[in-house]
């Protein structure tokens, strides 16, 4: 019994380290690679190194590395929450894990219907990845969601899913779905089909990026303001950041915490709505029941 208990605790420690270490690694990496600059500047993601590929070079950027760190951290969190799970919930972490699962399953079945109840893990993954990526900005790291490539990657994944579920009734039905409600509107439908991933990617990226740009602008403005008011004083007092204390934190609560979580929720909800909206449910179930009768 003693031995088992010790093993349990060791695994717990490993999982907690798995949650925390990636973020510490990210901070260390940022300190090591970012050159120290005196001003506050708006810049894109740093390129760490470039891999030579046959068609095009593959640059490994800060946003890719940070999103992998977030993925490792979320994996650690999931392993920690589900570690030592029992049939009857008696620990705090199992209650939290069950609450998450119940909430997301309710959300998915409420928005998509019973047929798509298997979508809950995917939606949770998108929700957690997006929310934690935006929250990474709280540690002073580059948020992966303020890079268009990351958001576009998720949007393309969702687009593939939408197209897969539209193909469920065969290619003929897929083609027919463009000619609705009238036939001559088909070109517009094709354009709106491709506008879906573009708008999803731009929405997520634009919201997060605009928040970080506004934060940086206000921070540099406050720096100038305190330089004007205290700049004439000698020595240490002249460089005292009077206005940079507290005010950027309030903005960070809105732009990083609230806006980041809201965008994650909106991205997940739009995924659910688009996938279940593109699926020709009536036709599919009619064919399924017809097949059953013939067999």
């Amino acid at each position: 019994m003693e031995n088992k208990d010790r093993r349990f605790r060791t695994l717990d420690t490993v999982y907690i380290l798995m949650m925390i270490l990636p973020i510490v690694c990210g901070i260390v990496l940022k300190i090591l690679t970012n050159p120290v600059s005196d001003g506050i500047a708006i810049s894109g993601a740093n390129v760490f190194f470039t891999i030579n590929m046959p068609i095009q070079d593959l640059p490994i950027t800060e946003s890719q590395v940070n999103s992998w760190l977030v993925m490792i951290s979320i994996t650690g969190l999931c392993l920690f929450l589900t570690h030592g799970i029992k049939e009857k919930a008696d620990t705090k972490r199992q209650h939290i894990a069950e609450w998450i699962v119940e909430k997301v399953e309710g959300l998915v079945t409420g928005n998509m219907g019973e047929y798509f109840s298997g979508f809950a893990p995917f939606v949770t993954a998108i929700l957690a990845l997006s929310a934690f990526s935006s929250l990474l900005a709280l540690f002073g790291l580059y948020a992966p969601t303020s890079d268009l490539n990351i958001a576009a990657g998720w949007a393309i994944l969702v687009f593939v899913l939408i197209t897969y579920y539209k193909f469920k009734c065969g290619p003929v039905q897929y083609m027919k779905s463009f000619a609705e409600p009238v036939k001559f509107i088909a070109p517009l439908n094709v354009i709106s089909e491709f506008a879906t991933p573009v708008s999803m990617a731009f929405r997520h990226y634009g919201n997060v990026l605009s928040g970080s740009v506004i934060s940086v602008l206000i921070a540099s403005g406050l720096q100038g303001l305190s330089a004007i008011i205290l700049g004439w004083l000698p020595g240490f007092i002249g460089e005292f950041p009077l206005f940079q204390i507290g005010i950027p934190a309030v903005l960070s609560i809105y732009f990083d915490v609230f806006s980041g979580c809201l965008q994650a929720y909106i991205f997940a909800t739009l995924t659910m709505l688009y996938v279940s909206g593109g699926f020709p449910a009536d036709e599919y179930f009619r064919r399924k029941s017809a097949k059953k009768q013939t067999v």
């Binding site: 708006i42 929405r203 634009g206 919201n207 990026l209 605009s210 909106i266 739009l270």
Partner: peptide, 23 residues
């Protein structure tokens, strides 16, 4: 909130264009 997010899209297109033009 969902409706606001969808209505915001056109503004965000403009924002992306503006950011591209500036940076």
């Amino acid at each position: 909130l969902m409706g606001c997010a969808v209505a915001e899209t056109t503004g965000l297109y403009a924002l992306v264009i503006a950011i591209l033009l500036i940076f």
